[in-house]
């Protein structure tokens, strides 16, 4: 059949078969390019400039001088980050708080995910719904609610004083403890959902097989369930850890003045000091600190999986 006899629809279908794949994959790539890569490049650019009292408040990177383009790269911002121990402390603090929060979230989230995955069919969707339910209220409002709970005159103190267990109110708000409460509370669903999806897929007969071969229930858990849920543990931990490191709202509202986290530092540089170049350098450094180890880790993992195939 010669091609000039094809109808427009047939031509379109053939074109789609040939190029449809590229189109489908291309759209999300374009989206990511536009809303992730371009802003990143702008921030990167600002981090190499100098602060100025101007609009915008930083020097230009490219300049026309003598009919040529000159690029002025300023590494001073990054050197400044190294020279002031405030930044290093903030980074380390953020990573420590995020890591501890991730572990607590995992310890709380795992049993919950396990329970939901093993619940009866109708019960399961109800429980999952309850996990997702908090998302229907604004994040900010929920964190504010914790102020009301943890405050000096908050719910917990009022209750404990009323029962007579304590006579002096406990100081909970504006401590690191409150930050942990906030982070764990906020990010728990991000831990539960990937864990649930791996645990739910797991074949119950694997656990029965382990018990049949002599494992007590807890041994079957350690030897079979836990290793098989590792992908869920990793996914959940990354989903909690990464945003927790850069968290700003929770330490700002619940943490005290001593809770130094990188998100707050960043905010201060941008809005209090209006030093955009330094703030950008902080953001880029954080990205490198976080993304590079994670990419390396994923690379190792894919390589290991390939070796197993």
């Amino acid at each position: 059949m010669s091609s000039d006899k094809l109808t427009i629809k047939q031509k379109f279908d053939r074109w789609m078969i040939k190029h449809g794949r590229v189109l489908v994959i291309g759209i999300p790539y374009f989206w990511l390019f536009l809303f992730f890569l371009v802003p990143f490049l702008i921030v990167l650019k600002i981090s190499f400039s100098m602060a100025e009292y101007a609009q915008p408040p930083y020097s230009a990177l490219f300049a026309w001088i003598d009919e040529g383009v000159t690029i002025t790269l300023n590494f001073g911002n990054y050197l400044f980050l190294l020279s002031d121990s405030l930044y290093a402390t903030a980074y380390l603090n953020s990573i420590r708080i995020a890591a501890i929060s991730t572990i607590i979230t995992l310890l709380i989230g795992y049993p919950m995910a396990y329970g939901i995955a093993r619940a009866r069919g109708s019960m399961r969707s109800v429980l999952l719904m309850l996990v997702i339910l908090p998302f229907w209220t604004s994040f900010l409002i929920r964190v504010y609610a914790w102020i009301g709970i943890l405050d000096r005159e908050g719910l917990i103190n009022a209750f404990l004083m009323w029962t007579g267990i304590i006579t002096e109110p406990l100081i909970m708000r504006q401590t690191e403890f409150a930050v942990y409460v906030g982070i764990v509370y906020t990010y728990l669903p991000f831990m539960i959902l990937p864990l649930y999806s791996t645990l739910e897929k797991m074949d119950i007969s694997l656990i029965e097989a382990a018990m049949d071969l002599g494992c007590k229930p807890w041994q079957a858990f350690v030897k079979v369930t836990l290793p098989l849920s590792l992908p869920g543990i990793l996914a959940g931990s990354l989903l909690v850890f990464i945003p927790a490191v850069g968290e700003f709202v929770i330490p700002e509202l619940l943490g005290g003045p001593n809770t130094l986290m990188i998100g707050r530092t960043l905010w201060n540089e941008f809005f209090a000091n209006r030093d955009w170049p330094i703030a950008s350098a902080v953001a880029i450094a954080m990205l490198i600190f976080l993304v590079v180890p994670i990419m390396w880790f994923q690379h190792i993992q894919t390589k290991q999986e390939e070796r197993e195939q």
Binding site: D203, S205, L206, E208, A209, A210, M211, D212, L213, G214, C215, K216, K223, V224, P227, L228
Partner: peptide, 27 residues
Amino acid sequence: AYERPTNMMFQSYALFPHMSVEQNVAF
């Protein structure tokens, strides 16, 4: 089950996917 003198071959085989053939048998 873990104290009974029986062993079971499951309908779905229930082999541990994270272990090699050898490790499965040795379990």
